[in-house]
């Protein structure tokens, strides 16, 4: 008998990503409540479950875990967007913008693309993670930074380092993610 080597989380992840790929946002067992949730619930999951709670256990390792999680989503989104576009950056970015809007992650706007310097900067307006959050001391959207890193990594097939340099929660009105191609 073949052994199922996937964990339950991996099985759930696959189903969620397949749902995203299909573009079908209706969901079973949510007849009355529908597919949308209040943003504060997402933020509770992001900043509490995947934020302060993880920090309680992992200390300085928490941002890495959050970044890595965002990167996994970014890699999956990148694969969806990279299909059938013949490596065209503009089309790719267009598809990513649409996907981020559909998923209400934020409004993604390329701010600077300097491929000679190996630097891209992408703005995430109305960022889902930090909207309505204030007075933090450093950028907090490690998940989005990882996600953007994963998206860029998929297109260029190169290692990247994504860093959030501006954050709405810092009072910057937007989140700016700088991606360095390695």
């Amino acid at each position: 008998m073949l052994q199922n080597t996937k964990s339950d989380y991996q099985i759930a992840q696959q189903q969620i990503l397949e749902g995203i790929v299909s573009g079908e946002f209706e969901i079973e067992n949510r007849k009355d409540l529908g597919p949308l949730i209040p943003i504060r619930l997402f933020q509770a999951l992001r900043m509490v479950a995947l934020g302060s709670n993880v920090e309680d256990i992992l200390g300085q390792g928490a941002p890495s875990l959050v970044y890595h999680s965002g990167q996994s989503l970014g890699l999956a989104m990148g694969k969806i967007a990279a299909a059938n576009i013949d490596k065209d950056l503009e089309t790719y970015v267009g598809k990513i913008k649409m996907l981020c809007r559909q998923l209400s992650i934020g409004l993604v706007v390329p701010d600077r693309v300097d491929l000679n310097a190996g630097v891209l900067e992408l703005r995430v307006d109305e960022c889902v993670s930090c909207a309505g959050i204030h007075n933090v001391s450093a950028p907090i959207c490690h998940f989005e930074a990882g996600m953007v890193g994963g998206i860029v990594k998929t297109f260029f097939n190169r290692n990247v380092k994504a860093t959030e340099t501006k954050c709405n929660a810092l009072g910057d009105k937007t989140c700016l993610i700088r991606v360095d191609l390695m």
């Binding site: 309680d56 992992l58 200390g59 300085q60 390792g61 928490a62 890495s64 875990l65 890595h68």
Partner: peptide, 21 residues
Amino acid sequence: NTDAIGASVQVVFGAAARSAA
């Protein structure tokens, strides 16, 4: 896999430091 090892090392170190605390 540099991405995976990098994140794992930070996570393991962070968890160990927390349990020490």
